[in-house]
């Protein structure tokens, strides 16, 4: 159907957006492409260093703790919970955008609030994980974990872990701040006056991107 429409309408003849989206939304996409390359550069440099190392710490050995479970060996469980929280908050964000299409102010406010709660829950989990690792002796420039083959590991592992999850956490933080700003505007009735809730969509795009990046961080640091 798209092709039929494209063929009939001369998208590049001028007079309207050739992308069929508003300027703001297009710019959000462009920003996300540039941000994707930033994250890509970080993750690829991590991969390069990992490929150039003869051995590397085992993530199942490093990330095996759960709050309140003491020294129980629970690899992947906590990070799975974090992944679930972030996916869930992505869903509530889509529901907020969806409610915005119907200009249902109450529902937008409700789902945005849940998205903020999810974002804060994720950040709290990350704060706990970082604190826990810090107390185990891991930080930038310090790596207490041995390689899989039992040899002493370099600090590359912790440097990359804290830098990349930290950069992602910073994105989540700014996402939460943006969501709060948007929620305040929704409650104030700014978008009701404007006649549309497109701001919710734009911030939603950013929020989903943060979730998207986490999918890759999760694979690169915890699974591979």
């Amino acid at each position: 159907m798209d092709t039929a429409v494209t063929a009939k309408k001369k998208w590049w003849a001028g007079g309207y957006s050739p992308f069929n989206v508003s300027y703001g939304k297009l710019m959000m996409w462009y920003f996300l492409i540039s941000d994707a390359f930033t994250f890509g550069a970080l993750l690829i440099s991590y991969g390069t260093i990992r490929f150039s190392s003869t051995s590397w710490p085992d993530p199942n050995e490093v990330f095996r703790s759960f709050p309140g479970m003491g020294h129980a060996n629970l690899p992947l469980v906590f990070v799975s919970l974090m992944t679930f929280i972030l996916i869930m908050s992505s869903v509530t964000m889509v529901l907020a955008v969806h409610a915005g299409h119907f200009r249902d102010r109450k529902a937008v406010a409700k789902w945005l609030t849940w998205t903020i709660v999810g974002g804060i829950a994720f950040l709290s989990c990350q704060a706990w994980e970082w604190t826990h690792l810090y107390h185990e002796g891991a930080w930038w420039g310090r790596n207490p974990f041995l390689n899989v083959d039992g040899t002493l590991a370099s600090t590359n592992f912790t440097n990359f872990f804290f830098t990349i999850t930290g950069f992602h956490g910073l994105h989540v933080t700014s996402g939460v701040v943006l969501n709060i700003v948007i929620l305040a505007n929704v409650l104030k009735g700014t978008y009701e006056e404007r006649g549309h809730y497109e701001m919710v969509e734009k911030v939603g795009l950013y929020w989903h991107f943060v979730d998207l990046v986490w999918v890759f961080v999760f694979t690169c640091f915890y699974l591979l």
């Binding site: 494209t6 998208w11 050739p18 992308f19 069929n20 996409w29």
Partner: peptide
Amino acid sequence: EIKNLIYT
């Protein structure tokens, strides 16, 4: 979205 945006 339309193809122009997807490819871009």
